[in-house]
Design a protein around this nucleic acid. Structure first.
Length: 271
DNA sequence: GTAATGGAACGTCAAAGCGG
DNA sequence: CCGCTTTGACGTTCCATTAC
């Protein structure tokens, strides 16, 4: 264990450079970024028209009293929980004037560099590969609209492997891409649960607990994937902001130079 | 070589958000 | 209102780097 708890550090990796996400003390405010079209500056043009109002959520103020640990944690949670989702922000950024359809669409981010693909629903289908079935290893395919780079996801489809033992129990590989250990799942879990989603319920206590553990496995599986996707989106969001900062800095620089040139022209004319 | 350290990524939990 | 999704927080693991 490296750090005790993970406070104060965000899981951000933007490629070569590491990015620390800090909670900036900003009063309730909104930044208005006006669309500016300047034919002279291609770097600006590529973002022209995509600027939107960025709502800056107040995170904390300097004089916020965060004396006790509990109240601090509670306050932090309350405050942070009110952040808009990355999806919402990126949707707002990428679709000026129109609300994009929320489901299963891909869009370009405001700078046109990062493609942003969304996945909102995880469709679970179970199937068994003949060759794998002979070895007792089967796959559960999670059809997902978003291509994720992590784990054994290929083009938005996450393949979860499992095996059924001779005793009828299902074994789920644990540990992501590398199968490191097998966790015993309840008999009939996952596959049957997925396939028999609308099947007739059996109400014996044992079946109820099996059903419970099966649901839990499924929930954890989905949440695992969702967390992965969320991190990916967060990274993309940070990259998007960084790009925007670069563009705005460039724009600012250009405007300053332009102003300078105009001033000189004006002074010459005056003299 | 090895312990210490830091960063990145992950899994899980909990709570808010959101759609039907 | 309910069920599902999203995301911050937290703890853990792995890996790279650095100091000794």
């Amino acid at each position: 264990m490296s750090e005790g708890n993970g406070r104060g550090r965000a899981d951000i990796d933007s490629g070569n450079q590491s990015v620390s996400v800090v909670h900036v003390n900003i009063p309730n405010s909104a930044i208005q970024v006006q669309p500016v079209i300047q034919a002279n500056h291609p770097s600006v043009i590529q973002n022209a028209g995509n600027f939107q109002t960025i709502q800056i959520v107040r995170v904390a103020t300097v004089d916020d009293d965060l004396s006790s640990d509990d109240s601090e944690a509670n306050k932090r949670r309350e405050i942070l929980a009110r952040r808009p989702s990355y999806r919402k922000i990126l949707n707002d950024l990428s679709s000026p004037g129109s609300k994009m359809d929320d489901d299963s669409n891909s869009s370009q981010s405001q700078d046109g560099q990062d493609s942003y693909v969304q996945a909102n629903t995880l469709q679970l289908t179970a199937h068994s590969d003949a060759s794998q079935a002979t070895q007792g290893l089967q796959t559960l395919t999670m059809t997902n609209a978003s291509p994720t780079s992590a784990s054994n996801s290929t083009g938005g489809t996450t393949i979860v492997q499992y095996a059924q033992g001779p005793d009828g129990q299902f074994y789920i590989p644990v540990g992501g891409t590398n199968v490191q250990a097998y966790q015993i799942a309840a008999p009939g879990s996952l596959t049957q649960g997925v396939v028999m989603a609308s099947g007739s319920p059996i109400s014996s206590p044992q079946h109820i607990s099996e059903e419970g553990s099966r649901k839990r496995e499924l929930r954890l599986l989905k949440n695992r994937e969702a967390a992965r996707e969320c991190r990916r989106k967060k990274k993309e969001y940070v990259k998007c902001l960084e790009n925007r900062v670069a563009v705005l800095e460039n724009q600012n620089k250009t405007l300053i130079e332009e102003l300078k040139a105009l001033k000189e022209l004006y002074c010459q004319k005056d003299a």
